[in-house]
Simulated scan of single mutants.
Amino acid sequence: MDFMKPETVLNLDNIRQALVRMEDTIVFGLIERSQFYLSPSVYEVDKFSIPDFHGSFLDWALLQMEQTHSQIRRYEAPDETPFFPTKLLKSILPPINYPKVLASYSDEINVNDEIKEFYINQIVPQVSCHSGDQQENLGSVSTSDIESLQAISRRIHFGKFVAEAKYQSNKEMYKKLILAKDVAGIEASITNSAVEQKILERLIEKGESYGTDPSMKFSQNPQSKVKPELIAQLYKDWIIPLTKKVEIDYLLRRLEDED
């Protein structure tokens, strides 16, 4: 996939390959997070006194990261969606003129608030090794969280490319569904239960492989760092449904860009 070549970006095989690679990043990110305590102080609003900032320590750290990355063009890339889109800084590097692939409103479709909420409230409590805080690791926890959040966000918002590719492959069908505001019909058209089941099975295999000490591979108690079933459940309950939401939201507005 080359974002300077639109035909490679809207190739469904290339999109699937990219999504499979993102699985690796997400699995490793959760394994990394599992070595730390729950660390509720990181998520508590105004727990720490930060000048001119209202929010959690994680929010502050994430904002600093995004502002720095915005200065090196990260959020000019069409596959990146910031958590703080209104607070990005001007890039120090000259701009890249990416060919137009997605609809003009694509940046307005942003579910990062929902991603952050389910990550903090549903995922962190299940992958953390213990409850409570470890004061010496609060910075490490926030760094690990940011890496996981960015990986999950990229994967979910990649649904925009899936939606555009499917729209281009059958414009007449989607025009009818969009004009009728047929959300159920759109969801049915983008759903492939067999593929989703293969994703869940592959995630369990990856969780078993990546999260287990190779020396204990054949042990009766392999001691996986994160339960592989948990990773699959994360996809089933949150990542796949939110990806569909992104696709549906994108497709419902797709005729805005048609003459």
Results as ranks from 00 to 15, higher is better:
Y37D: 15
L149D: 02
S153P: 11
K181W: 10
A184L: 12
H157I: 01
I156V: 01
M216R: 05
K47I: 13
E258R: 01
T212M: 05
P85E: 12
Y167R: 01
V141D: 12
K206C: 03
I240F: 00
Q168W: 04
Q220P: 12
M216E: 07
L203T: 03
S153W: 04
H157V: 00
T81S: 04
A151S: 14
P85T: 06
D52P: 05
E172S: 09
Q150V: 15
A188P: 00
F53P: 03
L63Q: 11
P51S: 10
V226I: 00
K171T: 12
Y174I: 06
G139H: 14
I109P: 02
L138N: 14
Q134V: 15
L19E: 04
D13F: 05
F3T: 10
F84A: 08
Q122W: 09
K236T: 04
K5F: 07
V42E: 13
K87Q: 12
Y37R: 15
Y235W: 10
Y37A: 15
I152C: 03
T212D: 02
F158E: 04
E247Y: 00
N121G: 13
I31M: 03
S144A: 15
G55T: 12
G29L: 05
E187F: 05
H54T: 13
L58V: 08
L12A: 04
E7S: 14
S41C: 12
K90A: 15
R21P: 05
L138E: 11
E117T: 13
W60V: 10
S224C: 08
R33A: 12
Y37S: 15
M1H: 08
S56D: 13
L203H: 01
I123H: 03
S128M: 00
D52H: 08
S34L: 04
Y235M: 04
I50S: 09
Y250F: 07
H69S: 13
T86E: 13
L88A: 07
F53R: 09
Q17E: 13
T86G: 12
Q67V: 12
S140P: 08
K198A: 05
N110S: 01
A163H: 02
D113L: 15
F161Y: 00
V111N: 02
L177F: 07
Y210D: 11
A194C: 00
M4L: 13
R73L: 14
K236A: 04
L89V: 08
E256A: 08
D259F: 06
I156R: 02
L58M: 12
I239M: 02
Q197G: 05
L138P: 13
R155C: 04
L88S: 10
D107K: 08
Q126W: 11
Q197P: 06
V20W: 15
K166S: 13
L177N: 06
N170T: 03
L138M: 11
V101A: 08
W60Q: 12
D59N: 09
R21G: 07
S144C: 15
I152W: 09
P241H: 00
Y75S: 03
I186F: 04
Q168S: 06
A151F: 06
S49I: 14
D46M: 09
L58R: 06
A232L: 02
